[in-house]
């Protein structure tokens, strides 16, 4: 049963008539060149950009639901941790905005800090965190809200290979453990192969091929063959 359904999504200058169904608890990887519309597609799902068409979550039309009520966890490409808040307060931000009781906030934040092994960072400010630590904190900040949908925009960009591998494993484990429906944007073929239940390839704002990892890499369409060749 698809959890997210996108019908005829079009945005000014970018997406062209995109139709896509993402299954419940699926981890779908979105691949494509820079400017292909990958981030815009995530922004449409999060309600952060204007679009024509229809976005459905669990058979409910979300077009009139503002971002803050879409219940979507979104790790933006550059994370954007709030510089004036330490790790604990960054993670607690959404819970406080939702007027969660303080004892419940502490419990939830401590729990997610432990889950992502970042308890030792809780008093540090973003300026004192490394790239990998910032991504973990950003992920914790999104996950603490217990969203049903998780959007990850190049979550491993500009990380060293060892840190990227560790975070990749953590994301995969969290996705399974928390039963999330996840959209994961990447340029990296190995990352896509390791993470994806299904892969969708976007070129110039259009979906060019959707399929399993085997479909995409073993039976690529002509457009995808060109994409793979250019990327290599």
């Amino acid at each position: 049963m698809p959890f997210i359904r996108l019908y005829n999504i079009t945005t000014p200058y970018c997406l062209k008539n995109v139709n896509l169904h993402i299954r419940d608890n699926e981890l779908m990887v979105i691949m494509g060149f820079t400017g292909a519309g990958k981030s815009t597609l995530l922004n449409v799902i999060a309600g952060l950009t204007e679009y024509h068409g229809e976005v459905n979550f669990d058979q409910k039309n979300m077009n009139d639901t503002p971002t803050e009520r879409r219940d979507v966890g979104y790790l933006l490409q550059d994370i954007y941790l709030f510089p004036h808040l330490n790790t604990f307060n960054n993670i607690a931000f959404g819970l406080r905005a939702a007027s969660c009781p303080p004892d419940k906030i502490t419990k939830k934040v401590e729990s997610i800090l432990n889950l992502l092994h970042i308890g030792h960072l809780k008093k540090r400010y973003p300026k004192d965190l490394s790239g990998g630590e910032k991504r973990r904190v950003g992920l914790a900040r999104s996950l603490v809200m217990e969203p049903k949908i998780l959007l990850l925009d190049e979550p491993l960009a500009s990380l060293d290979p060892a840190t990227a591998r560790n975070i990749r494993r953590e994301i995969k484990a969290l996705h399974r453990r928390l039963n999330l429906t996840t959209l994961y944007v990447t340029h990296d073929f190995n990352e896509a192969r390791e993470m994806a239940d299904r892969i969708v390839v976007m070129i110039n704002g259009e979906l060019k091929q959707l399929g399993s990892v085997q479909d995409i890499f073993n039976q690529p369409s002509m457009a995808i063959r060109e994409f793979i060749a250019a990327a290599n």
């Binding site: 971002t67 709030f82 905005a97 999104s142």
Partner: peptide, 26 residues
């Protein structure tokens, strides 16, 4: 940076909450 406001909205913050807890402190 508008991206911080986007981040706050994805975390469920209302316009007023974003103003007092993100925009003015920053």
């Amino acid at each position: 940076n508008g991206e911080y406001i986007k981040a706050a909205r994805t975390l469920g913050a209302s316009t007023w909450y974003t103003l007092w807890h993100v925009i003015i402190p920053m």
